[in-house]
Computed example of a mutant assay.
Amino acid sequence: MIQQLRIYEIFENNKAAFHARFRDHAARIMTGRYGFKFASMWETKFGDRTEFVYLLEWPDEATKTAQWAAFMADPEWAEIKRVTHAEHGPMVGQIEDRLLAQVDYSPARGRSLLLG
Rank of each mutant, 00 (worst) to 15 (best):
F71T: 03
H25W: 04
Y34T: 00
G89D: 00
I29F: 00
K15N: 15
R49Y: 02
E61Y: 04
G93K: 12
E43G: 09
F18K: 13
T65W: 05
M91Y: 05
V53K: 00
P59Y: 00
D97W: 14
L55D: 05
T65A: 08
E79R: 14
W58R: 01
P75N: 01
F71I: 02
E79H: 12
Q94L: 13
L100C: 14
A70K: 11
A26C: 14
W58F: 09
F11G: 01
K81E: 10
Q67H: 09
F71C: 04
H19P: 13
M41G: 07
W77I: 09
G93M: 05
F11I: 02
S40K: 12
A101H: 15
D24Y: 02
Q94I: 12
G32Q: 06
M30L: 13
F36C: 01
F46M: 06
T44D: 07
D97G: 11
T50W: 06
I29A: 00
P90K: 09
H88P: 11
E96I: 13
L56W: 04
L56R: 04
F22C: 08
I80D: 08
E76R: 02
H88E: 03
G93L: 06
N14H: 00
W77F: 03
A70I: 08
E43Y: 07
H85N: 11
R23F: 09
W68A: 05
R33L: 14
T65E: 05
Y34Q: 01
K64L: 07
R23N: 15
A16I: 06
F71A: 02
Y54T: 07
M41S: 11
D24S: 00
L100R: 12
T31R: 14
W68N: 12
P90E: 07
D74R: 00
K15E: 15
H88L: 03
K37G: 02
I29Q: 01
A78E: 01
W68F: 11
P75H: 01
F46H: 10
D24R: 04
W58C: 01
R49N: 02
P59C: 02
R49I: 06
V83A: 13
K37D: 04
V83P: 09
D48A: 11
S40E: 14
F71Q: 02
M30P: 08
F11C: 03
V92H: 12
T65P: 08
A17I: 01
R49M: 04
G93I: 05
A16L: 03
P90W: 03
D74E: 04
E61L: 06
A86S: 14
K45Q: 07
I80E: 05
Y54S: 08
A66T: 09
A78H: 03
A70G: 03
K81D: 11
E57M: 00
A73M: 03
W42Y: 13
G89A: 01
A16E: 11
G47T: 04
A26S: 15
K64E: 07
N14D: 10
R82D: 10
F22Q: 10
L55P: 02
F52G: 07
D24C: 02
H85Q: 10
D97P: 13
V83N: 07
P59R: 00
R28N: 12
R23A: 13
